[in-house]
Each structure stands twice: as C-alpha cells, then as structure tokens.
Design a protein around this nucleic acid. Structure first.
Length: 641
RNA sequence: GCCCAUGUAGCUCAGUGGUAGAGCGCAUCCUUGGUAAGGAUGAGGUCACCGGUUCAAGCCCGGUCGUGGGCUCCA
C-alpha cells in the first residue's frame, strides 16, 4: 500500500504495509518527525499517530501549533485529568470528549468537586505530564473490553452500543480508557492547561438518568496560547450584556416582576425604539402591512392551530369567567385570522403581514439567561401568504431583506443552514411531497442565485416545513441565531386558508413565517455584546454629552444643548462642579459617542471642542461644522439601502 | 425541572456566632480646573424572604424566591 506524507506542503510517497500506525511508519522514515508533529489530517479528518492506517491517501502532518490538532491535545488532557481523578478519588468515569473550546470529563461521584479539589487534581495532572507517559493504542474485542471495564456501567453501556466487534482503548502509565481517539504520543506533550469549572450533568444528557459531575478544562502546547485563551475568555466576560446592561443602565430583571421578564430602562428602551422605528420603515418599504394583535386569546384558537396539543407545556393558560384563555406564545394564528377575514383573490397575493408581537412562553427556569433566554419577548414576526408561482420570488425577497437588516447592525460573517426533512421518515411531517419539493426548490434556488454557501441539514426541519436559518457571527466570532425563514404546510390547512384563482376555483395558500431579528430582547442582548456597548451613533441611547470646563461655560453649554435637542439629537448636559478630566471620564465610561467641551475659549470664539468616544480629541469646530459632521454620520447609517 | 454554586448599601465586594464594613456612585461644602478619577463632610442596609437551632444568627439548619455555571459538542 502506498500513502503520501505531506510535510509543510511537500508530499512524499511512502510504500508501507497496511495497518501500521503513522507512528511506526514515521519511526522508520525519520524518527525526529515524531517530535515535530503530533497528528495528521486526511480527508477532512483528524488522525492520530496511533491508529492503524488502512486507507491510501495524503496525510498532512500537523504540529501542535496547528489549530486542527487541538482536538487531540484536548482529548489527551481530558484523559490526563481522568487519570488524576482516578488516582485521588474512588469514582467511576463516564465520558470525556474534546469540545469546541477545550474538554470535559463526566464523573460519577457522590461528593461534588470543590475549587480545592480542582487544585489537587491540577497538581496530580502536572505529575502525570512530567512523567511523560507514552500513550499506547490497542484494538481489542468487545468481549475483552467488557472484562476490562467490568466495574464501570457507563463504559459497558458504551461498549454495548458500538457496532464493530473490535473497540479501541488508549493507555497511559497504568490508566486505561475506552476511547476512539485521537490522542497525542505522550502525556508530556501537554504543556499548559487550566481546569475551568465544575457543573452538574446527566449521563447521556438525559435528566432521568444518573446525575454526574462535569469538570471543564482547556489546554495548549505552550503557556502563551493558554494565556491568550484565558485573556479572550475574560474579554468575553467583560462584554456580557448583563454586566453592560447594568453599567449602562439599559434594562433590568426584577425579582418582583418575575424571572425571564425584561424591564427596559430609558436607555435600553431608546435603543429598542430606534430599532423598531427602522424596522417598521423597512417593512413598509418592502410591501408589508403592519398589524397588531391581542396578548391573549381563547383556548379555542390554539386548539385550531394545534398549539394546544403539542405546545401546551410552554403556554400560560388562565380562566376568565368560565372560559379558558392563553397568553399568546406565537402570533401566527392571529395573522391567519386577518387573512381569512375576507375572500382573497389571486390578484391580492402575496399578502405580507408583520407585527412586533410580544409573546410569552413558559421556559424551564434553568434555561433563563439575561435577555437571551427569557419568558416574555417581542418577536419581529412576519407572515407571507402567496400562490405557488410566487414562492421563489418571495423567498428571494425575504433573504435579501434579512441580509440587509443584519448588515445594518454591523454583522459581517454568516453561516446559512438549510433544514430539510428526514428522507427516511417522510410520514412524520405535515404537507405533501409536491409542497416540500416546491418549497425546498425555492429555498435552494434563491440561495444559489445569490451564490450563498449553505449547509444542508437533513432531518433538521420542523415538522411543518423546511427552513433557512442564518447564523450571525459577532465581533468575537461567536455564533448567534439570526434570521429564520420557514415554510408552513400545517396551519393553512388547519385554518382552511384559500384563495380564488383565475379559474374561479379555490386554491391552497403557501404560508411563510419569517423573523429577521428573532426577538428584540435577544437581538439587543446580542448587539450589546457585539458592539461591546459602543453603539454606533444612530443607536446610541445618548449620542452627545455637553460638558463645561468651568461654570463660565454654563450658559453657552445650555444653549448648545438646546440646539442639539432641537436638531433631534439625544443629548445630556453635564454642568457638575468637577474637573474636566473627571467629566470626560464619566462620559467615556458611559460610552457616549460624542462629547462637546465648552470652556472660556469656546465661549469666546463660539466654537465646540469635539471629542469622540473611541478616537479622543478631534479638534475645534464651529457649531455649523459640528452639526453637519454629526448629521452626516447619522445619515450614512440610515440610508444604507 | 435537575445538579452545583450563590444572594450583605444604587453598583462591585469584604465580613466563620457577640453593636453592619470598604471603594465607587449620590448629597452638601471647599476648590474654577483644558481632554479618562481634586479635597472634606454626610446620607444610605429588615444582611432576598419564611421558619428553626442558640443566651445571642448576616454567619449554623430547613424551606421558598432570584441569580450564575452546566444538563448529548457522544467511546
């Protein structure tokens, strides 16, 4: 068998027998390579130096500086941690994979781990790393594995589920774990690690099964990378929307109001107000009609829509007289009623309704999180009702709208997911083949037309129709749920929606749900973190603060403040008896975009000394110049289209 | 919902059973200063809530509510 070994983009062909590990192959060729490289990359997959090579192909050797090798680094560190835990405590190990950032291990123990335990475990891990145990791979039979792990019900369960007759184990200094790898060559390769946190978890994520203790950690091949990671971790914490929300006085959640219910303070409400205004204007431009619907409706409505049957546990219900009502968890049934309020002709379609509709859902208490996961939120909801021949065009319009919208808020990177039904279980979905094919075709066509790359997710569709989800990436590269466009083959039937065609007959209506921002709560929460509280001028709750050097500037400052207000700016006046540097600091902490500084010089020459939040002192300008400059910046933001 | 942690002044936090603390913020006064913290004085707390143990509870115990980290990234 011949394989290619690629070292820094130079490929050499090697003749070798099948089933040798890369370690053996490289040892024969050039043993020093085993010091420089840690794992290999082949066919978009990570392959460690232990696993037998059975396929011909090109193997790219990766050093530990390559990001792709981190999975092996983390997995190995997870084993080192497990070994340390086993040495220190009498516990059973469950499962310990590498994850997106680092690793964890789930451990079955009666007593939860404390910070002190983490220190002890860390010390033991250091010993294991210093001992530099070689890591060995072995492929054994399931029967054999069951004997080795006889006293560990978790591993036994995992072995039972493996389809192969052979399973792989990895060993290091007397420690054995059932594992499919990949791993580094020895424990000494891990040179910097940190155990980050302990949390509870369930065996296989199932709340009905054993409750376990999970330890999270991160590791790198050098101290600098670890410090860099920890620095980024701290930075992300600093821009947490809950922290900034308090510091900038944007919103609060009150115990007396209830968990998951956001109260918008004036500054937060201003941001929301600006977004809503922009949102409405854009919708009207694009042919939507804005409607408003009540917060509650009789159970009957939710029985027709089906929510009463499959969504009941998330709904708040209550009685008025003898009638049961529901606090609305969705807006769609109302929109359909509006559609059905008249006989619709093919000429009327498409009909597009939009609503900033506040809905309430009873989320489990443990999942609530700041503004990002709440119980009451305002959806930027919209429904499009159209004919079959309009579907492609409508999807295209929504897609363009969605991208315009999120780009306005400074999001530049996206990932697009197309969720379609599971071809094996077509019977689990509402709608017929023709509808699904038409809808999927329209989604794919519009994505292709725009050269948008997307990931196809088989079986990820909701039961009532296929959808496109746009994931947006923020300034720190974190992913957020963005716009979503979903077909619905369920509700039109339940509500007997139809239109009268050119032929005078009734025809079925295609219904599309779409949300561009998602919910205002989550969207603004995300925006706070994305901008780190440094909102662009058009969104900033306070745009300009006018402040004086001494009280000799008070009168002119008041005059300027009034002038700014008359010109529609959101501004504040600081006449406090404090030093200039102190007032500037106060304003900077509040992340206010512009500061007007007024001292004796300015009063004398009728000018403004202008300071920008992220740039510092800009210089002196006449009032007219300043207003033109700032208005220009506003206009740039709003007229992006 | 479950596991663990946690709740003290508007904010950030100290306080291991014996009279409730600091810094920031706020108010008043002094200071009139030029691009990120001038000084002094003062106000501000039912230590989340309910119950228990104790001569005595912010602290120990139980419950409730809230908050935080997690709860399939699959050997």
């Amino acid at each position: 068998m011949k394989i290619k070994i690629n070292i820094s983009n130079k490929s050499t062909v090697i003749e070798t027998e099948e089933g040798l590990s890369l370690k053996k192959i490289l040892e024969r060729k050039e043993p020093s390579l085993l010091d420089k490289y840690a794992v290999a990359w082949c066919d978009e997959k990570l392959i460690d130096f232990h696993t037998p090579v059975r396929e011909e192909g090109e193997y790219f050797l990766l050093s530990l500086n390559d990001e792709r090798s981190m999975k092996a680094m983390w997995h190995t560190t997870s084993h080192i941690m497990a070994q340390a835990v086993k040495r220190l405590y009498k516990v059973n190990l469950a499962i310990g994979p590498a994850i997106k950032d680092g690793f964890y291990y789930d451990i079955d123990t009666q007593t939860p781990f404390t910070d002190e335990d983490l220190n002890k475990i860390s010390k033991e891990m250091k010993k294991i790393i210093e001992s530099n145990y070689p890591i060995e791979y072995e492929s054994i039979t399931k029967k054999n594995a069951k004997e080795i792990f006889a006293d560990n019900k978790f591993k036994l369960e995992l072995i039972q589920e493996i389809e192969d007759e052979q399973v792989s184990i990895y060993k290091q200094g007397g420690f054995i774990d059932l594992c499919k790898g990949p791993h580094l060559l020895s424990t000494g390769k891990v040179s910097a690690f940190k155990l980050l946190s302990v949390a509870g978890s369930y065996w296989r994520g199932d709340e009905h099964r054993e409750s376990l203790q999970r330890i999270y950690g991160i590791s790198y091949s050098n101290k600098e990378s670890l410090n860099e990671y920890l620095y980024r971790y701290e930075e992300a914490k600093k821009r947490d929307h809950r922290k900034l929300g308090r510091e900038l006085d944007l919103f609060n959640i009150y115990e007396d109001v209830g968990a998951g219910l956001v109260v918008w303070h004036p500054k937060g409400a201003t941001i929301r107000e600006v977004i809503e205004e922009f949102w409405k204007k854009e919708h009207i431009k694009r042919g939507y009609e804005i409607i408003r619907t009540p917060h509650i409706a009789k159970s009957k409505l939710w029985k027709i829509s089906g929510h009463y049957d499959y969504y009941l546990e998330n709904m708040y219900t209550f009685k008025v007289d003898n009638e049961e009502y529901v606090l609305k968890p969705m807006n769609c049934p109302y929109h359909i009623l509006v559609y059905n309020s008249d006989i619709r002709s093919y000429r009327d379609l498409p009909i597009r309704y939009a609503e900033l509709g506040t809905v309430y859902r009873n989320e489990r208490s443990g999942v609530l999180h700041g503004m990002l996961r709440v119980r009451g939120f305002t959806m930027d909801d919209g429904h499009i009702f159209c004919r079959e021949d309009q579907v492609t065009d409508e999807i295209g319009k929504v897609l363009d709208f969605a991208f315009d919208m999120i780009k306005t808020f400074g999001y530049k990177d996206f990932e697009v997911h197309l969720s379609v039904r599971d071809p094996e279980h077509k019977e689990d979905y509402a709608g017929n083949d023709k509808e699904w094919e038409k809808a999927e075709g329209a989604l794919i066509e519009t994505l292709n037309e725009r050269n948008i790359e997307y990931e196809r997710k088989e079986g990820e569709a909701v039961f009532y129709g296929p959808k496109i989800d746009i994931k947006i990436k923020d300034a720190l590269g974190r992913e957020w749920q963005g716009p979503t466009i979903q077909f619905d083959f369920n509700l039109p039937g339940r509500f007997k929606m139809k239109y009268i065609g050119e032929d005078g007959n009734e025809h079925p209506v295609y219904m599309i749900h779409r949300a561009l921002l998602g919910s205002l709560e989550r969207f603004v929460g995300g925006l706070i973190e994305h901008y780190n509280g440094n909102f662009p001028l058009w969104l900033a709750p306070t745009q300009i603060r006018v402040l004086t050097v001494t009280d000799k500037g008070n009168e002119f400052a008041k005059e300027m403040y009034e002038k700014l207000k008359m010109n529609g700016f959101r501004c504040e006046l600081d006449l406090k008896n404090a030093k200039l540097s102190k007032k500037i600091r106060d304003s900077e902490i509040q992340k206010i975009p512009y500061i007007f500084i007024i001292g004796a010089k300015e009063v004398e020459s009728e000018t403004i000394s202008l300071r920008h939040h992220l740039e510092g002192d800009i210089g002196s300008f006449s009032i007219k110049e300043v207003l033109t400059h700032i208005k220009g910046e506003l206009n740039r933001e709003v007229t992006y289209i």
